[in-house]
Design a protein around this nucleic acid. Structure first.
Lengths: 206, 206
DNA sequence: GGCATATCCGAGTTGAATCCGAACAATTAG
DNA sequence: CTAATTGTTCGGATTCAACTCGGATATGCC
């Protein structure tokens, strides 16, 4: 039964362990990330690690939470601005920011992200999905013509998942054959043309 | 150093181990899939497993190869037919077949795929990517108006990765909020509208 | 300072991955 | 057909990483 850190010293230990988790993962990959590695990098003993985490899995969970908080913290304040943008700009802004976040600290988060989908249970990714779905809904509200779009849940699912995974996969590609700019432009065009096409279809169906 | 099976009995053993891998994975998840489990399900001893596979990883590699062969074997013969279809039909046909394959044998392949999609080294997924890129190119050839589309590599990357991951993610969702039919229709619309939009843009730029 | 509590430590235990040498089966030479 | 050789299987022994535990050290409060 892991304990809650109470003194500042203990909080620092927990923080160091989580950070060490990212570092070890980026350095050795998941397979070769042992509790001993993590403890060593964090500068504490294995015993201390198990003082605050029931098992290795929980360290990953904590890393995940950290990452989610980071992403949400980045996107949420942008929402009011994003909502007023042209749809292509929105896609671009979001994707460039997302890339920058993932590539920070030598791709520490990116490396984790490419494993997370497998490790992390659904409900841990959920906050990000909800956030993006929320953004989508707010965007539609601010652009009344979009209210006519049908089946937003399905389209949201496609755009969010398709977008996120495509970018993660692109960034982990060792030597990409296309430029990131082209990818971003492509995704923007995709969404924009979809919207235009659907609106046209809805309009002619009146 | 693992050996190559030579006698039919040994081939059967190897086959049983690979199949047992899928079964164990579907039953217990990756975490709890041990070599002992796999050997037990296959009806052989651990020793035999290590006779043909250097380590557990290699069992997974073999499963991967099996899966890729399965997918390629399904898609390749369809290409001549797909290439003549309307683009929405093509997307639908491909996705329904893909789903059926993944859900065969109680989702044996799906379970593996959701693990492999993130973990498998690039070069192991490559054949599927190449196959789909090939399909895309052939499709463009058969529909000359599409030749005007710009930046096919980037769009191919988006459509292939976005499509595949979206579907895998959808199928592993415990209780999806949208119907698979809607997802398929959405993806079809996405691609179709994109094509129309781009052609329109290219046309007006003449 | 002295007590209570929080934190840290690392050798020891446990179990899964992997190795290995003997037993068993198939194939081949004579 | 028998013996020798080569292929196959087996399961106990070994190794290494996850995790535990009892004691040592640090912190905060009186």
């Amino acid at each position: 039964m892991p304990r809650k850190p109470q003194q500042p010293r203990a909080h620092a230990t927990v923080g160091a362990i989580v950070e060490a988790g990212f570092i070890s993962l980026a350095r050795h990959g998941v397979e070769n990330t042992t509790t001993r590695h993590i403890a060593d990098i964090a500068g504490v003993s294995v015993g201390s690690l198990y003082e605050y985490f029931a098992n290795k899995e929980e360290v990953f969970d904590a890393m995940h939470e950290h990452m989610v908080r980071e992403v949400v913290g980045m996107v949420r304040p942008l929402i009011p601005t994003l909502v007023r943008m042209d749809i292509r700009e929105l896609v671009a802004e979001l994707l460039y920011r997302f890339r920058d976040l993932l590539e920070r600290d030598d791709g520490r988060y990116l490396r984790y992200m490419s494993y997370a989908a497998y490790f992390a249970p659904r409900d841990q990714i959920e906050p990000i999905n909800r956030l993006l779905m929320d953004l989508l809904m707010k965007y539609v509200m601010h652009h009344p013509r979009l209210v006519r779009l049908g089946n937003l849940p399905a389209m949201g699912f496609i755009m969010i998942n398709g977008g996120v995974f495509t970018v993660i996969r692109y960034l982990t590609e060792p030597n990409p054959t296309v430029a990131f700019d082209d990818l971003v432009r492509g995704l923007g065009d995709m969404v924009a043309h979809f919207v235009d096409g659907e609106l046209q279809r809805a309009g002619s169906a009146d």
